[in-house]
């Protein structure tokens, strides 16, 4: 669905941000991207719907080149991005108005815009906040509203750029729940984070460092790779515990390390079976 071919990009001051990135994203895939600050992951995100154009190489979205200005609007209809800071991505003064912003830019007829706003408000559970200013929402609701503002464009692919890094853990979980639901509905998800605990549901994880892809694979293998420690990325603590228990003959399968309760349940099953 999205293909990056030999993509390189340098900041205006000449510092390289991405070098020679090769990657393909299939329809319906859930990809996690991790890396330190400055590893190029956010720059990569901005390339996915043509907000940045590659200096070298090309980015193709469903066969359309992001450098082709005449196709940009179409590309942005397909790939939506949710950004880190909820405050600076609201354009409307009310939640409803903000949700309408995207479809209005697509020049959709009023009744279609209202239909979409209605549907997304219900889907994300924001009906009660319709006339609230997005700025008065709590962090978690705010990020959900930002997601809703992207969903009214009805994109096939959603990019989340460190959306939970300013949120408390409970709000983060709320946002992640929506991400998971969207993936189940068949949306392609690209989830960028430096919190490894959030990537349990991903199909594939890409690790970036200094503008390059340094590691790629299934979460089970990538997250336990000791190489991550060299990058300053600590593995999820429950996964770490499961790895260590394995050496003592207690086998906790990977799926069960996703939450404290599933982990505890598995230990009970192992220990108390007669």
């Amino acid at each position: 669905m999205i293909r990056l071919e030999n993509v390189s990009y340098s900041y205006p001051d000449g510092k390289p941000a991405l070098s020679d990135i090769h990657m393909g994203i299939r329809k319906g895939e859930y990809i996690g991207i991790i890396g330190r600050n400055g590893s190029g992951k956010s720059t990569l995100a901005l390339h996915l719907n043509g907000l940045l154009k590659p200096g070298k190489g090309k980015v193709m979205v469903k066969g359309m080149d992001t450098r082709d200005i005449s196709r940009l609007q179409e590309i942005r209809k397909i790939v939506g991005i949710v950004f880190q800071n909820p405050e600076t991505q609201f354009i409307g003064r009310t939640v409803e108005e903000d949700l309408a912003f995207g479809p209005e830019n697509l020049c959709l007829p009023p009744e279609e815009i209202r239909r979409r706003v209605e549907r997304v408000l219900a889907e994300i559970g924001l009906e009660n906040y319709r006339y609230h200013s997005p700025k008065t929402l709590s962090g978690g609701q705010g990020q959900c509203a930002a997601l809703a503002g992207t969903l009214t464009m009805e994109p096939e692919c959603l990019v989340f750029d460190e959306v939970t890094s300013m949120l408390d853990p409970d709000s983060g979980k709320l946002v992640l729940k929506h991400v998971k639901k969207l993936h189940e509905k068949g949306k392609t998800i690209i989830y960028i984070t430096h919190n490894l605990e959030e990537l349990h549901d991903a199909d594939r994880i890409i690790v970036m460092d200094r503008g390059r892809i340094v590691l790629e694979g299934e979460p089970e293998n990538v997250l336990s790779n000791p190489f991550l420690l060299d990058l300053g990325l600590t593995p999820p603590s429950l996964m770490d515990l499961a790895e260590r228990l394995k050496k003592h003959g207690v086998m906790i399968p990977w799926e069960k390390t996703s939450s404290p309760s599933s982990f505890a349940e598995e230990i009970c099953r192992l220990f108390l079976k007669t």
Binding site: L46, N49, R76, I81, Q89, I91, F101, N105, M153
Partner: peptide, 9 residues
């Protein structure tokens, strides 16, 4: 960026 990403021209 957020505006452009949502198709504002």
């Amino acid at each position: 960026l957020a505006m452009e990403s949502r198709g504002y021209q």
